[in-house]
Design a protein around this nucleic acid. Structure first.
Lengths: 200, 200
DNA sequence: GCAATAACTTGACAATGTCAAGACCGCTGT
DNA sequence: ACAGCGGTCTTGACATTGTCAAGTTATTGC
């Protein structure tokens, strides 16, 4: 795991094409594409391998096991989510926009989102995953207008996160009506407005 | 093993029903127990069958396929959730109590909750599932203090549902701190209070 | 009582995750 | 220049899984 990263660094530095080139990258992309098409539960390492044009055991070699591959996907997802949230906060300074960005991320990156909050599929103590999770959490917390995160817990930040996350999950799971599906960001802003979050 | 089955069958003949008695019930219970122990993704029909003391193909015979069994579990889960929400609303008339009941359900019935909102594992058009979902939705909506559910969408009801669901999901997925885990219902009520939901 | 039928079992098959052993390839030291 | 080394990937195998077709057994309707 740790040495994989090292190796990758060396390979990329020296040449752009080793045996495959950057198989790690290709496998992650293939996994994301496969999850997007068939859902996370139907994901097969062998299908991922075929998609990337390598042998059936190549993914396990790179990532240890299936959970290892999914962990890499989830970590990348949290990094992308953190990017999106930071961007939303920087440009608007408004919580409902940050929450809407959260919802948009879930829609635009369904495959990542379908993996990220499923601990039974992941190696939850993976350092890279933890780092990326922390980035996301910090970005969201910043956008929620809450303070003192360590004093037990911060009700406002938790409310913001719960609201955005619940909305996104329910939307993705197909529990919302047509009107919401057609313009999810507007719907979320209306929902956020129905609460006092981010107002004062 | 064969003897066990035979004995079981004979016992059941004495009591009430057919070969096994109520194998459907036993299989659902076995599935719930297995999911509670190993998570939904590691669930195996054969393990469920072994747990219930029947042959490996019995579950598929009863439920069609794996998704059929999980659909039955999910439907039962939605019915239980509806019961809990109705009870909370009847006794308190307060949204935050209904939301807290939602959260408590997720904790006390992890296995059900882990299945219920995962459409890729279910037969989403199953009539019994749809009926039970509708019951839950109605109960929650009633407890959210919202009105006219069909006028596009109801922001307040969506906010209530999103908040409770997001809180529950994040809690189960292990994203919350010690303080929240130790008293989830109190934490949720604090979170609900941080929003204006259910207030006026 | 006796077929008919529903409830299960048995046996098989393809697909899957994982592991051990090997083949391939570029790099390093001499 | 080149032999060996180490990392990348392949091959082959195995146990486990979901599902299906065919068989077996018990109950019910008549």
């Amino acid at each position: 795991m740790v040495d994989t990263v090292k190796i990758r660094a060396r390979v990329v530095r020296v040449t752009d094409r080793y045996h495959h080139g950057d198989l790690r990258r290709a496998l992650i992309d293939a996994a994301v594409a496969a999850v997007a098409e068939t859902g996370p539960s139907a994901l097969s390492l062998r299908a991922v391998a075929k998609r990337a044009g390598v042998s059936h055991a190549a993914p396990a070699h790179h990532f240890g096991d299936k959970a290892g591959l999914l962990t890499a996907v989830a970590a990348e997802g949290f990094d992308r989510l953190a990017d999106a949230l930071e961007r939303a906060w920087a440009t608007t300074g408004d919580f409902s926009a940050v929450g809407a960005a959260y919802v948009r991320f879930a829609i635009d990156h369904r495959a990542y989102f379908a993996i990220m909050f499923r601990p039974e599929l992941l190696h939850v103590d993976d350092p890279d995953l933890l780092r990326a999770e922390a980035r996301s959490g910090a970005a969201l917390h910043r956008g929620s207008g809450g303070a003192d995160p360590d004093a037990g817990f911060n009700a406002r930040a938790l409310a913001a996160w719960s609201l955005a996350h619940g909305f996104a999950e329910l939307l993705i799971a197909g529990n919302f009506s047509r009107a919401v599906i057609d313009d999810p960001e507007a719907a979320f802003k209306a929902v956020a407005a129905a609460t006092g979050i981010g107002k004062e």
